[in-house]
Amino acid sequence: MGAASSVPSPLSDANLPPAELAPVPVALLVDLGSGQVLYAKEPDRRFVPASITKVMTLYVAFELLARGQLRPEQVFRMSEGAYRDWHAVGSTMFLDRAHDVTVHDLLMGIANVSANDGCIVLAEGAAGSVPNWLALMNAEARRLGMKDSHFGTPNGWMDEGQTYVSAHDLATLAQAMLVRHPDLYRTYIGHPTMTWNGITQRNHDPILGKLEGADGIKTGFTNQAGYGFLGSAIRDGRRLVMVIGGAYTPKDRAKAAEALMNWGFAAFDSRTLFSAGEQVGTAAVQQGEARSLPLVAPGPISAASPRGTRAPVRLRVVYAGPLEAPVRKGDIVAELEITVGNRTGHRVPLAAGTDVPRAGLLARLRNGLLGLFT
């Protein structure tokens, strides 16, 4: 995510944000293909996320799966302590000490029926303890630049304010999940129901199955937090990510979420700049078998403008370089800054288009000689 900006000045009534947002304290809408903020209301205000916390638990699990440190078929069982504290507490998948449960089923339960017990069993099984899992959650938050977030629980249960987020940080987390783990996102996020141990429960996502293209991500509610939602939808290859925080009623949350998403798709035109996998630029590499690598778009990259306008677009590749080998194909190693007209620039990630192994002796000698002449 790039720096947050104010919503573009409307050119007509079609560009005015929907009235349904009035009762919602926190709201944000981001065009993921460009990183552009289409609407922002208190985007950096810290608030209690309740069960939206589980998105970070899912993200940590996705990272571990991608590294081979966790496997979907791995089996865990509820500990005595977890059973005592979390059996049938709040949203649950009704885990107990008598049944083994796979990582796959835990992730399905956490993502789609907001299983508090599933988060604890996953944390203990994958990391050895809940504190160890929280350390992973907060380390990932720091790595992603989520400066207004902290996690004191893996499931969002009330913890006297130790857990807090901002809308901007949640959008950053959603972007990372979608860019780094698109296959896992499709596997686990946005199922209308989930069945485990003969019990079927419904997903409470307010726009899933009701709004065209909606496919997740996670709701949250406690008396302290109010009603929140981190949601996403895709239409014609264009993906929007939305945050609603602190709504007073579930009806306010649902109306605001649906209205904001529909407005974002209707009030802005999107121009495709690069297709998924297309080369955007190059980056220098040191200590590698190659001295540079191609930078490619991990997904479609676009630029949004208020409908009926076509402002000029400026592009700039940004990375801390030269990159240090080894670099793996698909690693996020750079960003593309997109500036539309005179608005604030926003950034989207760029991936390495090829592997660059660390150089052997001959390659280092060759690179050193080439460096003398360039």
Rank of each mutant, 00 (worst) to 15 (best):
G2L: 05
A3R: 15
A3S: 13
P10T: 10
S12I: 07
D13R: 13
P25G: 03
G33H: 09
S34I: 10
G35N: 10
D44I: 01
V48R: 15
S51Q: 10
I52G: 08
K54L: 04
K54F: 04
V55T: 15
M56I: 13
R67M: 09
Q69K: 15
V75H: 10
M78E: 00
S79K: 07
A82M: 03
Y83P: 06
R84A: 13
D85N: 09
W86T: 01
W86P: 02
H87Q: 14
H87A: 02
G90V: 13
S91V: 09
T92K: 14
T92A: 13
M93D: 01
M93W: 14
F94H: 14
D96C: 12
D96Y: 10
V101R: 03
H104Y: 12
L106D: 10
L106G: 00
M108P: 15
A111C: 01
V113E: 06
A115R: 04
A115L: 09
V121N: 08
P131I: 06
P131H: 07
N132G: 10
W133Y: 15
L136R: 07
L136P: 01
A139H: 05
R143I: 10
G145K: 08
K147H: 14
K147G: 02
S149I: 09
G152P: 03
G161C: 05
G161Q: 12
T163F: 13
Y164S: 03
Y164C: 07
S166P: 14
H168K: 15
A171T: 08
A171Q: 04
A171V: 14
A171F: 04
L173F: 08
A174P: 02
V179I: 11
V179Y: 07
R180L: 13
H181R: 00
Y185A: 03
G190W: 01
T195I: 06
T195G: 05
W196P: 02
I199Q: 13
T200G: 01
D205L: 01
I207T: 14
K210I: 09
A214R: 03
G216P: 13
I217R: 05
I217V: 08
G220V: 00
G220T: 04
G220R: 08
G228M: 10
G228F: 10
I234M: 15
G237L: 04
I244N: 00
G246P: 04
K251T: 15
D252T: 08
A256K: 12
E258H: 10
F265R: 11
T272H: 12
T272N: 03
S275G: 06
A276T: 12
E278T: 09
T282F: 12
Q287F: 09
G288A: 02
G288D: 00
G288N: 08
E289M: 12
V296M: 02
P300H: 09
S302L: 07
S302D: 11
S305R: 11
R307S: 15
R307T: 15
R310H: 14
V313W: 03
Y319A: 05
Y319F: 15
I332Q: 13
A334L: 05
E335L: 13
E337I: 05
E337T: 05
I338N: 06
T339V: 14
R343E: 15
V348S: 08
A351F: 08
V356A: 00
G360S: 02
L361Q: 06
A363C: 00
R364H: 08
L365W: 15
L370D: 14
G371M: 12
T374G: 11
T374V: 11
